[in-house]
Computed example of a mutant assay.
Amino acid sequence: MIQSMTGYGKHVVQLPSKKISLELKSLNSKNLDINARIPQAFREKELELRKTIADSLTRGKIDFSLYIEITGEDTTTEVNAGVVKKYMDQLRDIADGDEVKLLELALRMPDTLKTDKEDIDPEEFKTIEAALKQALRAINIFRTEEGKVLETDFVNRLTTLEQLLQQVKDMDVKRLGTIRERLEKAVADLKVDLDANRFEQELIYYLEKYDITEEKVRLANHLDYFKTTLHSDDSNGKKLGFISQEIGREINTIGSKANYAPMQQLVVQMKDELEKIKEQMLNVL
C-alpha cells in the first residue's frame, strides 16, 4: 500500500488555562526536512519533538507548528511600568499631550513588556507529546487516503501501457515484413547482380539489429514488477522510481529500433503515459 507525501494533521487540547494546538503539513521531498515553529519556552524540547516526528514520518518536507493560547487569567507577560513612565516623561518634555495619547505612544516603544521565563510543566509536556502523536496519526491517515488515489491512477496507466505493449507485439511481425520488403526493393532498384545467399545472410543480420523481442519481454517484466511493488506492504516510492526508469529505457530502445511509423506512434503514447507516472511518483512516500 503506497502513501502520498502530501498530508495534513491537527490536534487541539484544551487545558484549564491554556489551549494547545498542533499542526503538521507535509509536501514531497527526497528526504525528511522538518521545519518547526514552536514557542520560545519550549525550545529546549524541540529535539524531542523532532525525534517523535522523524520516527513516524520518514520522508517529506514537514511544517510543524505548536501554538499555546492562554485562555485563563495566568500570564507570564507584564507591563514594565518603570520603563513606560520613563518614556512618558521623555515624550512630555518633547510635546504636550493628554496622558492617554502619551501612554499609547509609550507602549509602542521597546522593552515596555517583560516576560518571565517559565519552567516547562512535565505534565503539560506529556499532554503535548500525546497531542503530537494524535496529529501524526491524522497525517498518516491523510497520506494513506491520498496514496489510494495515486495507486488507482498508477494501475490505470499501467493497464494502458500493457495495452500499448500488446499492440506493439501484434504489429511487430508486420513491421519486420515491411522493413524486409523495403530493403529488397531498394536493392532491386540498384539493378545489380547479387549473390542470393549472401544477400539473404546480410538481410538477416540487418533485421536482427531491429529485433525488439528482448525489449518486449523486459518491458512486460518491468510492468509486472511495478504492480507487485505497488501492492507491497510498504510504501517505497524510490524503488518505484527506479523501476519506472527501467521501463523508460525499454520504451526508448523500442522506439529507436522500430524504424516503422505506426510503432513509433505507439512508443510516443507509451512515453506520455510513463511521463505522467513519473510526475505522480514525486508524491509517493
Rank of each mutant, 00 (worst) to 15 (best):
K86I: 12
M88G: 02
Q90D: 09
Q90P: 04
L91N: 00
L91Y: 03
L91E: 00
R92V: 03
R92G: 04
A95D: 02
A95G: 02
D96H: 08
E99R: 04
K101I: 09
L102A: 06
L102K: 03
L103S: 09
E104N: 10
E104Q: 08
A106S: 09
A106M: 08
L107H: 03
M109N: 01
M109K: 00
P110I: 00
D111M: 05
L113I: 14
K114Q: 09
K114G: 01
T115L: 00
D116R: 14
D116T: 11
D116A: 08
D119T: 11
I120S: 04
I120E: 07
P122I: 06
P122C: 05
P122D: 06
P122Q: 10
E123Q: 11
E124T: 00
F125H: 00
F125V: 00
K126M: 11
K126Q: 15
T127S: 02
T127Y: 04
T127R: 04
I128G: 02
I128T: 02
I128F: 05
E129M: 11
E129K: 13
A130T: 04
A130Q: 12
A130G: 05
A131S: 15
L132Q: 00
K133D: 08
Q134S: 13
Q134E: 12
L136S: 01
A138G: 03
I139C: 07
I141V: 14
R143W: 09
E145M: 14
E145N: 15
E145Y: 15
G147S: 09
G147I: 12
G147R: 02
K148L: 12
K148G: 11
L150H: 05
L150D: 00
E151I: 08
D153M: 14
D153Q: 05
F154G: 00
N156R: 10
R157W: 08
R157L: 03
L158M: 09
L158T: 05
T159W: 15
L161Q: 09
L161T: 00
L164E: 02
Q166F: 14
Q167P: 00
D170L: 11
M171C: 07
D172I: 02
D172W: 03
V173M: 06
K174T: 12
K174W: 10
R175W: 12
L176W: 04
I179M: 06
R180D: 03
R180I: 08
R180V: 06
R180G: 06
E181I: 10
E181S: 11
L183R: 04
E184M: 11
K185T: 15
K185E: 14
A188K: 15
A188Q: 09
A188G: 14
D189H: 05
K191G: 09
K191R: 15
D193A: 15
A196W: 04
N197C: 04
R198A: 12
R198I: 06
E200M: 14
E200A: 11
Q201M: 13
E202V: 08
E202D: 10
L203P: 00
I204H: 11
Y205R: 03
Y205L: 14
Y205W: 09
L207F: 13
L207G: 03
E208A: 03
E208V: 07
K209A: 07
Y210T: 12
D211K: 02
I212W: 11
T213C: 01
E215S: 04
E215F: 14
E215N: 10
E215L: 09
V217E: 13
N221F: 12
H222N: 05
H222C: 01
H222D: 04
L223A: 08
D224T: 10
D224L: 13
D224N: 12
D224G: 03
F226R: 01
K227S: 09
